[in-house]
């Protein structure tokens, strides 16, 4: 069995005096889908932002695809190019068209020829069914379409791992489904995914493992059926009873 693609060991993080993450240990194997849930302020977002070093951790180690994240910035850009991320607020570039949003990074980071990048972008946009919107600007699209574009943009870098930071929390209920469908398709294609979400239906359908976090700690980590059928800790039971 190969090494896990993400290895987190005894990772700690502080914002000033406040400790957000306490002794996080987590291994993620390739092609596995992990759902992270928990109440707000529990450090879920911070955890996955640490994985592509949008946040720095102060103690412990994170190894992504064989490279340890550290002070040295040399590898960080390379790792970020391998780890795609989708944000709660979409964060599309409003001054670029949908197509340009998708081709920007492949052209300038991966040095892909423009034509090739555009073909790839159109292919990815077709996957999420917004290839007909390619020449519009993000401001002209609905929230669901923007989020699907954000997924396509991340996929254009052909990442090995995809991180989702509450991708459906800023959407209208009707649009949640179209985004979740895109994510389910991606999962079926075999992508390694770490998803922070409150969509338990999605977790049941897709996830291999569910992680429950509270107050900066991983309270419970179990495979999906186990997690929903008989959660071990009381905190998890309480949480599940409130959201299910």
């Amino acid at each position: 069995m190969a090494d896990p693609i993400i290895q987190i060991k005894d990772m700690n993080k502080w914002f000033g005096d406040f400790q957000v993450l306490k002794d996080i240990n987590l291994d993620v194997e390739a092609n596995k889908k992990i759902v992270v849930c928990g109440p707000s302020g529990s450090g879920k977002s911070t955890l996955i932002r640490c994985i592509n070093r949008l946040e720095e951790h102060q103690k412990g180690s994170i190894i992504v695809d064989g490279t340890e994240l550290s002070e040295e910035t040399k590898n960080i850009e390379q790792i970020r190019a391998e780890v795609g991320m989708v944000f709660q607020q979409f964060n599309l570039f409003p001054h670029l068209s949908i197509l340009d949003n998708c081709t920007l990074a492949p052209i300038w980071v991966k040095k892909m020829p423009k034509k090739e990048a555009e073909e790839l972008a159109l292919k990815q946009l077709k996957q999420v069914q917004i290839d007909d919107q390619a020449n519009k600007y993000p401001g002209q699209l609905s929230g669901g379409q923007q989020q699907r574009c954000a997924i396509a943009r991340a996929l254009c870098m052909e990442p090995k791992i995809m991180l989702f930071d509450e991708p459906t929390s800023a959407l209208d209920p009707e649009m949640i489904k179209e985004v979740l469908d895109a994510m389910v398709n991606l999962a079926k294609a075999g992508m390694t995914m770490i998803v922070v979400t409150h969509e338990m239906g999605f977790a049941k359908e897709v996830a291999d493992e569910v992680i429950f976090m509270d107050e900066g700690m991983i309270i419970e980590k179990a495979n999906t059926t186990e997690f929903f059928a008989n959660p071990k800790s009381d905190r998890t039971k309480l949480f599940l009873s409130q959201i299910l």
């Binding site: 592509n52 850009e77 991320m85 964060n91 001054h95 990074a105 300038w108 980071v109």
Partner: peptide, 29 residues
């Protein structure tokens, strides 16, 4: 918004690429 920096970084852009293609075009506008 900070999200623009995050998005650019998460796509693997370094400081200069991020500023030239993402941040400055919007900020200057």
């Amino acid at each position: 918004p900070r999200g623009q920096y995050d998005a650019a970084k998460s796509l693997g852009m370094g400081y200069w690429k991020m500023h030239i293609f993402v941040i400055l075009p919007q900020a200057l506008k």
